[in-house]
Amino acid sequence: MPLFRNAQFEISIAKASGLPAPRGPEIAFAGRSNAGKSSAINTLANHTRLAFVSKTPGRTQLINFFRLQNGAVLVDLPGYGYAEVPEAVRRQWQHLLEDYLTRRPNLVGLVLIMDSRHPLKELDRTMIGWFAPSGRPIHVLLTKSDKLTRSEAAATLAAVRKELEPLGGHVTVQLFSSLKKTGVEDVEKVVGGWLAGLAEEASDM
């Protein structure tokens, strides 16, 4: 069965103090507001409304936990970077995101969502800066790739890979389209590899 199929909602939290006790490996999904994160999660899970797709960027203010069939957890982080959100709310989100990404002990990897037409904005680099020092893997999804020509998509993919190359092999990049449902198997292969690596480590202990 596909990795993200039949994911089940478990809990939403608004503050770091509300985080549930670690239970199973967690894969975080993060991205700028309106980058297509909720659509990507719904496409991966083959579910139309697992993650709420808002017409108004900045609406998702919670960390949402979805339990996968294999016991791992898909963690949907609040979208960041929406200008019209009040400053106090923005600071609260930033604290919540940073706290989760830098301190969560069972977080095994980050799937970072970027609109392929506007990749690597300042806040995307901030997210990478928080998480990369942990040495855990980051997989970048360049969403809405259907809105680019084939040559534009290839050029964007190459440019993002080149900029992130100094971070080493634990950072990977791919094109993705929720509309065309392209790139799903690639995401499953990458994240499945993270989980398989954990299982191997556990068996060697």
Score class of each variant (00 low, 15 high):
residue 1 M to H: 12
residue 3 L to E: 02
residue 5 R to I: 12
residue 5 R to Q: 13
residue 7 A to R: 07
residue 9 F to E: 03
residue 11 I to R: 14
residue 13 I to T: 13
residue 25 P to K: 10
residue 26 E to S: 04
residue 26 E to N: 06
residue 30 A to W: 03
residue 30 A to Y: 04
residue 35 A to G: 08
residue 35 A to N: 07
residue 36 G to V: 09
residue 39 S to A: 15
residue 39 S to I: 10
residue 42 N to E: 11
residue 42 N to R: 11
residue 43 T to H: 04
residue 44 L to A: 03
residue 45 A to D: 02
residue 46 N to R: 15
residue 46 N to C: 07
residue 49 R to F: 06
residue 50 L to E: 11
residue 53 V to F: 06
residue 54 S to E: 09
residue 54 S to G: 13
residue 57 P to K: 12
residue 57 P to C: 12
residue 59 R to A: 13
residue 60 T to F: 09
residue 63 I to M: 11
residue 66 F to C: 06
residue 67 R to N: 00
residue 70 N to V: 06
residue 71 G to F: 12
residue 73 V to Y: 06
residue 73 V to T: 15
residue 76 D to H: 12
residue 77 L to S: 11
residue 82 Y to D: 06
residue 84 E to S: 15
residue 84 E to D: 14
residue 86 P to Q: 09
residue 89 V to R: 07
residue 95 H to E: 14
residue 97 L to P: 01
residue 97 L to T: 08
residue 100 Y to V: 06
residue 104 R to H: 03
residue 104 R to T: 00
residue 104 R to V: 01
residue 105 P to S: 12
residue 105 P to G: 05
residue 108 V to Y: 00
residue 110 L to W: 09
residue 110 L to F: 09
residue 110 L to K: 11
residue 110 L to P: 06
residue 113 I to C: 11
residue 118 H to D: 08
residue 120 L to G: 07
residue 123 L to C: 02
residue 125 R to P: 00
residue 129 G to I: 00
residue 130 W to P: 04
residue 132 A to N: 10
residue 136 R to L: 15
residue 137 P to W: 07
residue 137 P to N: 11
residue 140 V to W: 06
residue 141 L to H: 02
residue 144 K to R: 13
residue 147 K to A: 02
residue 147 K to P: 01
residue 147 K to H: 02
residue 150 R to K: 15
residue 151 S to R: 15
residue 155 A to L: 06
residue 156 T to L: 02
residue 157 L to R: 03
residue 157 L to D: 02
residue 159 A to F: 01
residue 159 A to W: 00
residue 160 V to R: 05
residue 160 V to F: 04
residue 162 K to N: 10
residue 171 V to G: 05
residue 171 V to L: 13
residue 174 Q to D: 12
residue 174 Q to Y: 00
residue 177 S to T: 08
residue 180 K to N: 07
residue 183 G to T: 02
residue 185 E to K: 15
residue 185 E to L: 09
residue 186 D to N: 11
residue 191 V to I: 10
residue 199 A to R: 14
residue 201 E to D: 12
residue 201 E to H: 15
residue 202 A to I: 05
residue 203 S to P: 00
